[in-house]
């Protein structure tokens, strides 16, 4: 609510710039998610390979991945809540929630990184698994670093109110992207 009032106070150019940023990040997400879809296509096509998974026991179990997924989901929910909080200009509560989200994201990365390390190698399944999870981890870490920067800048109060709101909004949207990309991978890698 507070945010809407703030946006009404923006100049025409500032409102235009904000609209542009929102549209831009949406199109970027719609575009870049297709690199993940491309890897899903790769996963699907490589299943026809004779070297896909000669030993069915090579397939990793779902337990660790499911826990990781739940943690990432919780992290994204907290980010969503943090955005609501900061829109009401409760900065200290925002920083607390934001930091917990980042830490949960870190736990997710560690868990999936562990899976990346332990997957039995020498099969097409393993190399597709490693490429998919590795590609996702790169995104999670990069965007996680951005969330960290928002946190640090928030603590230092370096933003003006409007910039700060956009920085948080962009970070949240990117983190949702990490979640959606992972959910696609999680279903394909572990359940199908």
């Amino acid at each position: 609510m507070q945010r809407d009032l703030l946006e009404l106070g923006l100049t025409r150019q500032e409102q235009q710039a904000l609209q542009n940023k929102r549209a831009g990040i949406f199109i970027f997400q719609a575009s870049w998610i297709l690199t993940f879809v491309c890897l899903i296509v790769v996963n699907w096509q490589m299943r026809f390979s004779p070297n896909w998974m000669p030993d069915p026991n090579d397939r990793l179990g779902v337990v660790i991945a499911t826990i990781a997924t739940a943690i990432l989901g919780a992290s994204a929910l907290l980010v969503r809540h943090a955005v609501k909080v900061v829109n009401n200009q409760n900065l200290s509560e925002f920083l607390r929630l934001w930091l917990i989200s980042i830490l949960l994201g870190g736990i997710f990365v560690v868990l999936i990184g562990y899976e990346w390390v332990i997957v039995p190698t020498g099969t097409q399944y393993a190399q597709v698994f490693r490429v998919m999870t590795g590609f996702h981890i790169v995104h999670a870490v990069s965007i996680g670093i951005y969330l960290g920067l928002v946190y640090v800048n928030g603590r230092k109060r370096v933003y003006n109110v409007n910039d700060y709101l956009w920085a948080v909004e962009a970070g949240a949207k990117l983190w949702y992207f990490v979640l959606v990309a992972w959910l696609l991978f999680y279903v394909v890698i572990y359940w199908i």
Binding site: W32, I33, L34, T35, V37, C38, L39, V42
Partner: peptide
């Protein structure tokens, strides 16, 4: 471009 190029990136 935004719909097709990501596939090239993947390949």
């Amino acid at each position: 471009v935004v719909l097709a190029t990501p596939f090239l990136a993947g390949a």
